[in-house]
Simulated assay, not measured.
Amino acid sequence: MELILAILTGVLYAAGIYLILRRSLVKLIIGLVLLGNAINLLIFLMGGLVEGNPPIISGEEKVLAEGFADPVPQALILTAIVISFGLQSFAIVLIKRAYQVVKTDDLDQMNTTDKIE
């Protein structure tokens, strides 16, 4: 299972970087979304996959005796998802406004200082 998730992480990184390097702003946002998901999946994989056991210590135990799921990567991923959602929402609104002003989503045409008439 970890091998499949590692391959999926690599594919998401590759697709995200490919789309970020395109000239369209829409493809840039889609690439950022894919890259953000790849980063979240990588953090999840680095925490390790453990089946079933929550990190709860019962009243009579002092320490955990068996393997348990580490809650720190899960909390980091949850925080990263919320932050990336806010960033993506802001970027979509910014791109919409830029498209309304310039009438194009091509970065090369947006970069020129000449007026298009």
Rank of each mutant, 00 (worst) to 15 (best):
A75Q: 11
L34Y: 04
E61D: 13
V50Y: 12
V72N: 10
A15C: 13
S84H: 12
G47T: 10
G52H: 09
L25R: 07
I57S: 03
K96V: 11
A75N: 08
P71T: 07
D108V: 09
I81T: 13
L42V: 03
F85H: 03
P54C: 03
I39L: 13
E61N: 13
D105Y: 00
D105K: 04
L19N: 02
R23T: 02
K115N: 08
V82L: 14
G36K: 00
L49T: 15
I56W: 07
N37Y: 03
I29G: 00
R22L: 08
K96C: 07
L19T: 01
F68Q: 11
L25V: 05
I39K: 05
Q88W: 06
L21Q: 10
G67V: 06
L8I: 01
N40G: 12
I7M: 10
G47F: 03
M110N: 07
L78D: 07
G86D: 04
L32D: 02
S89W: 08
E51P: 04
D108W: 04
L32C: 11
L21C: 14
K103S: 13
L32Y: 15
L34C: 06
L35S: 07
S89G: 12
L19M: 12
A14N: 06
K96E: 12
I57H: 02
L42I: 06
F85Q: 05
T79P: 00
R23Y: 04
Q88S: 10
V26L: 02
V50M: 13
L45M: 09
S58T: 09
V82P: 02
L32M: 14
L76R: 08
I17P: 04
F85E: 06
L12R: 00
A80S: 11
L49R: 15
V50E: 14
D114M: 10
F90Y: 14
I56M: 04
E51A: 08
L64T: 04
Q100G: 09
I83F: 13
F44L: 15
L45D: 05
R97D: 09
I29E: 01
P71E: 11
G36D: 01
R22G: 08
I7R: 03
I7G: 05
P55K: 02
L64A: 09
V102F: 10
V102L: 09
L87F: 15
A15Q: 08
K115I: 04
